[in-house]
Design a protein around this nucleic acid. Structure first.
Lengths: 250, 250
DNA sequence: TGGATACTGATTGTATACATCTTTGGTCGC
DNA sequence: GCGACCAAAGATGTATACAATCAGTATCCA
């Protein structure tokens, strides 16, 4: 009951969507649980109309599932669902990289990506990375992947990548924070950064197949991160998305 | 003002969605045109609430685009957008086929697909195929592709394929009807059917790479169909989706 | 005692009224 | 004559009231 009268700039629908998403990812709403609209109205402080709009959008986003008899429930994911979602994103990013390579990109277009990589270099340079560095990495990594999707110059492909990355555990840096405390963490980021450089090199030299393959492999690093985080059981609190996993975290 | 009181079994939202989709695909609503909610209310005969719900769903479907200042407009597609969407679907179906091959499927699971192919064989056997045969082919072909997506046993992948195929010009048999009058048509269907057989063979023998590659190539038949239909300019009336193409059909 | 049916409560789907914002047309000023 | 500003009309975003459907429970009959 804090920010009941939050800033008027964003629509009520967006506010409800953000609030409900937080509730889902934080685990306040359990997988399989039916979402009561009236309850959501009380929680979010907006009326039923924007709440319903938000529910529809969250369903399209993949966090909710429509109940045949009406209404929505929180979707449950298996560990394999998550791994598949990561492979899916890798496949789509691979397609984007291949398009970029085949169609050619100007040095001017590559500029922001290289700049992004240089900034990442600075972040991952100190050997025990700080938590803030990990956090900054997440932002820069997301930026790099977004720029890469644009590089395909294909609106349909970029759109599909966005939708595939919408699920928090499928996003490019979904499991980075989880292992910020592990010693292997920095090593994995160094490898990831190498992938970044390779894909740009492949695109520059118009090697479509190579660009595609490296992006697929790159996504599999996320899967490795996930397994690492689950096995070590450390800092799982940094992964709100895991509240959605069914029978993986018991 | 005919079916104002259509059957009560479907919700008003679905009815509005179907009606609006028809209006868009038939070209009654031009690309770039803002969709007036009140006008949609008059056209569809339902009230504003379900109309707005339908608009949100059609946006997620990819047929509409949100206007920053509010409301929606009909999306415009370039010819390249369409070709990219086809390649996108092929890539996703390739992933599904690879998953099916790698994970293995039981003969029991393959049964309905083989049955489907046998039915298609009967349809494309007579040399001058009838228009009804083409129409039946569209249905069976859609069924085969849906079954193949299921075969991946990956809900996220199947879901993404559904969404990629939602755009009419990206769907598996999007451009089949357009060339039902052309002599090359049957030949292309014979090749497509060969692809179908090959992918099942690859899956049966757990050849993931082969299964993936053939599905990618298979999708490119749709691109070939599109070019063929556009060049011949025959039966373009059978392609309502072309109303969305910007600057390709002038 | 078990099962089926009817009833009641609650929840979702729909319609409409209201407020705010955008857009468009006209007029005034430069 | 052109541009900017203001006003009015229409559009969308929001809230709420109503209707219909679904789930749960209790009772009645076999």
């Amino acid at each position: 009951m804090a920010e009941r009268e939050a800033d008027r700039s964003v629509s009520q629908t967006v506010r409800a969507q953000l609030a409900l998403r937080d509730l889902i990812l934080s685990g306040s709403l359990r997988p399989g649980e039916r979402i009561s609209e009236l309850q959501a109205v009380e929680t979010t402080g907006v009326s039923r109309t924007p709440v319903r709009m938000a529910l529809v959008r969250l369903e399209e986003e993949g966090l909710l599932e429509a109940i045949p008899s009406g209404g929505f429930m929180v979707k449950a994911f298996s560990e394999r669902d998550i791994l598949d979602s990561i492979e899916l994103r890798g496949t789509l990013e691979g397609l984007a990289a291949r398009f970029a390579a085949e169609r050619g990109v100007s040095p001017r277009d590559l500029e922001p990506l290289k700049e992004c990589l240089n900034e990442i270099d600075v972040l991952i340079s100190p050997d025990p990375m700080s938590v803030e560095a990990f956090s900054a990495y997440v932002a820069l990594n997301g930026r790099f992947h977004a720029l890469l999707a644009e590089l395909s110059r294909s609106a349909p492909v970029a759109r599909q990548i966005d939708r595939a990355s919408a699920l928090p555990f499928a996003s490019p840096s979904g499991f980075v924070m989880a292992q910020s405390a592990l010693p292997e963490a920095r090593q994995i980021l160094l490898i990831a950064q190498d992938h970044h450089r390779i894909v740009l090199d492949a695109i520059e030299n118009r090697e479509g197949g190579r660009a595609e393959a490296i992006m697929r492999e790159h996504a599999r690093l996320a899967a490795r991160n996930l397994r690492l985080a689950l096995r070590n059981r450390t800092r799982l609190d940094l992964l709100p998305a895991l509240a959605l996993i069914r029978s993986a975290v018991d």
